[in-house]
């Protein structure tokens, strides 16, 4: 089986400071990988490099495209990369307002990606938007409301619908449950798990919440000071951490 994503020695520097360095891994279709670490560990920098939002200083990010097979997304042209960004990739931001158009209705938000790839039948677009509202558990009566009228959890679910409507194969998530109430988090995690499984999505989830990765991620990568200090099966890394930093991280979680 060809990996969906092959990351080879990715490095990003901010002047003399290391954003992330020497990161390599393969992600296979259907796999969900978590990246954990404290603030400043380079996990968000890495995610933004992978998603094409930042240009890495070194390394390769090889994505298995539908049309041409494995292609290095670092060296591909910007139009190609942006096309991937609205078709095969999705990016779920921590703050829904970074990933939504707040002045556009829920239906318009979901429809944008469809229209961006050439859908121009209003009825079809609206039907798909309503179908997706239903899948993320938002009442279809809210289709013409703007996200400003939605709660934080609803905004986040809308952002997910907007991202998944074009049937992407790889989803990048940056702290998808950050800033939400615990009960809202649980519902969102449940939803994400279902969608990942149903659509056979591969996902890379950056978070500092170990409970989130235990529920969602098959594999885990632990980052510290821009480097990967430990990687492996999620429950193995959490239950039998090998690296000093991971042990500290795991033992710092409050038991409920």
């Amino acid at each position: 089986m060809t990996p969906l994503l092959q990351v080879k020695r990715i490095e990003k520097r901010y002047g003399a400071r290391i954003g992330c360095a020497d990161v390599s891994f393969d992600l296979y279709p259907g796999e969900v990988m978590g990246i954990v670490g404290e603030s400043g560990s380079g996990k968000s920098t890495l995610l933004n490099c992978l998603a094409g939002h930042l240009e890495p200083d070194a390394g390769q990010i090889i994505f298995d495209t539908r049309a041409d097979g494995p292609v290095d997304t670092v060296t591909m042209s910007e139009p190609e990369r942006r096309m991937l960004g609205r078709t095969d990739w999705a990016f779920v931001h921590q703050h829904a307002r970074d990933g939504l158009r707040m002045s556009v209705s829920a239906g318009g938000n979901i429809g944008e990606r469809l229209m961006a790839v050439g859908d121009c039948h209003y009825g079809d677009i609206r039907d798909k938007a309503i179908d997706w509202l239903d899948r993320v558990e938002i009442d279809e009566g809210r289709v013409d409301d703007r996200p400003t009228a939605f709660s934080g959890g609803m905004q986040q679910r809308l952002q997910i619908a907007r991202n998944l409507v074009t049937g992407p194969r790889l989803v990048f998530m940056d702290e998808p449950t950050g800033g939400l109430d615990v009960s809202v988090q649980a519902r969102l995690l449940d939803l994400l798990r279902g969608l990942v499984r149903e659509m056979g999505l591969s996902a890379i989830i950056v978070t500092h919440d170990l409970a989130v990765v235990r529920l969602l991620a098959d594999r885990l990568m632990v980052m510290k000071d821009g480097r990967v200090v430990e990687a492996g099966l999620t429950d193995q890394v959490l239950d039998d951490p090998q690296h000093a930093y991971t042990q500290l991280l795991v033992s710092s979680v409050l038991q409920v």
Binding site: D239, D240, Q242
Partner: peptide, 9 residues
Amino acid sequence: MRVIYGNYL
């Protein structure tokens, strides 16, 4: 048991 399950390395 955990070693057999791969939960412990």
